[in-house]
Design a protein around this nucleic acid. Structure first.
Lengths: 149, 149
DNA sequence: TTGCAAATAAGAACAATTATCATTCGTATA
DNA sequence: TATACGAATGATAATTGTTCTTATTTGCAA
């Protein structure tokens, strides 16, 4: 359960809160978690962490390359373990579930478009918001704030 | 300068603040403006509007289909006149300028990917963050908050 | 004109996040 | 193993972007 090496190699001290957060991401069923999610799950596991620490640790992990941050519509940041390989996301508007995909053609066209416009890509995000057509979708409607289109 | 018809047909009363905001979008050099941008520009034009009104009007215009809202990285919402045709965005990390593009291949592949995964697309956003290679780029560095990757 | 619902301005309230700061913890070293 | 010091933490204040509340004003139909 403890992987202090991950932290060590990232130049981070191996502290309880950091180990707990990392552990949570590695064992959670949902890959994508917000700061609030992490905080609440740690609390309900009996851990005693501060919300500020959660935010700090998440940001540090992001900078260390352990986590990747996403800004889906809805305002809050969402994190996932960095698998090393880039991928895009499709978010289910019914249940909020996030699926990942990677399409070579899309990636290639992006490069082409950017080059033609005189840009060098540093980063990109492609978010598809969709309705799940499978029946296994829990239909737990995702809160979509006004402003979501 | 006044286009009350736009408002009328959207079912909105033709009020001063609404006309001013609409006017600003139609005459501004920058297509993409945040609520703060709109508020400050109106103030410096000698107009007397409240920030709350700006937010309300922007949201109403979005719902009426006059404006489109985007969530670029950085937290704040950005609006632009709705031209009717969907397009994606490439944001210059140097100066913050936003260029628009549309690529049929990308759009088609998205549909394909979503269908294969069992989703029906409702909306999507593709944001490319890039460095401008042209010399005309003002190099007024865009504030990129921590959390931006 | 007048009346009244709709819209506004100002500021309080809110949610997500970051900053501050006194206390505690991890760990290199003695 | 004890200890000392800087790094990390938790509690809470502060900030930021946005929405809500309310008293007042405005657009417009009769």
């Amino acid at each position: 359960m403890h992987q202090p090496e991950h932290l060590k190699s990232a130049g981070l001290k191996s502290t309880l809160p950091r180990l707990k957060v990392l552990d949570l991401f590695e064992n959670s069923k949902e890959r994508h978690l917000s700061a609030e999610d992490v905080y609440k799950q740690l609390l309900s596991s009996g851990e005693d962490v501060g919300l500020a620490t959660v935010y700090r640790v998440l940001t540090q992990f992001e900078q260390a390359g352990l986590l990747v941050r996403h800004h889906f519509e809805g305002g809050k940041s969402v994190f996932e373990l960095n698998k090393g390989e880039h991928h895009d996301h499709i978010v289910c508007l019914q249940c909020g579930h996030v699926e990942e995909f990677y399409d070579t053609a899309i990636e290639a066209r992006q490069e082409k478009v950017a080059t033609e416009l005189g840009f060098t890509i540093r980063d990109h995000s492609l978010h598809i918001y969709a309705d799940c057509t499978k029946k296994k979708c829990p239909h737990k409607r995702l809160r979509m704030p006004p402003g979501t289109h």
